[in-house]
Design a binder for these strands. Structure first.
Ligand SMILES: [Mn+2]
Ligand SMILES: [Mn+2]
Ligand SMILES: [Mn+2]
Ligand SMILES: [Mn+2]
Lengths: 234, 234
DNA sequence: CCTATATATTAGGTATACCTAAATCTCTGA
DNA sequence: TCAGAGATTTAGGTATACCTAATATATAGG
């Protein structure tokens, strides 16, 4: 009945650190600061430093770390992070498609289970789903070999006023942001038109949903930043 | 991305202790000794004592514990243990029925996941499976309300020579025993006839499978003890 | 160029869940 | 009855992953 956990690497915590470094580093794999990680993970900066030092000197180092200059993933760390992201997105897709979860509940369940499913489980749900390329939020699912397909999509906060777009993906955010986003009704596949800037605030956006031209929706920079779009129509 | 775990009770370890006490206490809910728990869980006896003392003095005690006299579950502990057993058996059924796992692999996956699925996940797989009453090993699945249906089945080691039976359930065992059991080909639904005792060893049994009268199978007390049967035919 | 401030690290401490070795109980059999 | 064997508990320690407070570093502005 046990379930002994091996002493070293690969704990739930380590997984979450690696995933956070992957996301915060962005496509250019910039060094990530302790503070950024502390905010993202909700732990004290001192705890971050501790963990990074441990991960950097492990037998198979998960990160490259230099005091005061941030971290980035080592090849092994990157591999593991992508593995967990693949688990996460496959689980979300599975919960949504097979278990009929409401979309706003898939994230929290996936956030936990991503660390505990076996390779067999991963393989079986992928097969059951027909090896999907994207999750229900429109995000690419990394391949089994650890390749993350890049999407051709721009950020809503960079869109040109007057343009017509369709939502390509909605980023992973904290629970509160997710709730506010959900309230706007914006999700993958929704068509919208960007309105001329009304607020002085940089990166905030006003839009109009296709089919509902009467109601303008104002989005804060934070909300708009998580939505990626592609041009629609001609 | 976090997934903060509340400080007190309800860890994976605690769950496994409670489940072990439930099973070892049997239907009569006998007190369970530290040694029995230490063997079952694969931890040092001293660790057992530590955990039991903690569980006994928690704000909502999970066990009734008296020094040198063993433990049993409190009502709250029993509730939690049955909840985890329900998770375990629903997950096994789900892996077997929906994800087409080979039967010998369902246990290990369920042993891990049972601690991490949400109530929603539990409810959804139960619904998808049509609210099953037994798992793929023939064991009863506790109800959502925490009732464990009792089965009318006797232990193979108590069967009368000459009787014809069908296997009702196969108990949960350690990996090694499971492997040996699997090698005999015995599973739920298999029909067999008990042969006159050949070995002097108490509780060991010889049987013959229906349809394969040529090969007698000798089972050790340990193997036979995990197999429960019901009379078959007239 | 050099200090103030923000950023990051070190130091020291907590809780969980294990471990080994050293007591201390319990209870059986002479 | 009571000694000793076996079961159990206590004592003291480890590793992980957090925390707060104190200290050190980097660098941007004056
Ligand atoms: Mn996670
Ligand atoms: Mn995997
Ligand atoms: Mn378990
Ligand atoms: Mn449940």
């Amino acid at each position: 009945m046990p379930a002994r956990r091996q002493a070293n690497a690969n704990s739930e915590s380590v997984d979450n650190y690696l995933k956070a470094i992957l996301v915060l580093g962005g496509s250019t794999e910039q060094r990530v600061t302790s503070t950024a990680l502390a905010n993202r993970l909700g732990v004290a900066p001192a705890s971050i430093t501790n963990m990074l030092q441990k991960l950097a000197v492990a037998p198979e180092p998960m990160v490259e770390y230099e005091r005061h200059r941030g971290v980035r993933l080592s090849p092994a760390g990157r591999r593991r992070a992508l593995e967990i992201v693949r688990h996460h997105r496959l689980i979300e897709t599975f919960l949504y498609e097979i278990l009929d979860y409401p979309i706003e509940e898939v994230h929290d369940e996936a956030e936990r289970l991503e660390h505990f499913i076996s390779e067999r489980f991963e393989e079986r749900i992928a097969a059951k789903l027909g090896h999907p390329k994207t999750d229900p939020h429109g995000q690419s699912i990394p391949t089994m070999e650890g390749q993350m397909p890049v999407r051709e999509a721009i950020c809503l906060s960079e869109a040109l006023a007057g343009g017509a777009y369709v939502i390509d993906s909605v980023g992973e955010r904290d629970a509160e942001t997710r709730r506010r986003l959900e309230a706007t009704g914006l999700r993958v596949g929704i068509k919208l038109q960007v309105l001329p800037r009304t607020s002085a605030e940089t990166c905030s956006v006003s839009i109009r949903r296709a089919g509902q031209p009467e109601d303008a929706i104002d989005l804060t920079a934070e909300l708009a930043g998580g939505i990626r779009i592609v041009p629609f129509g001609i």
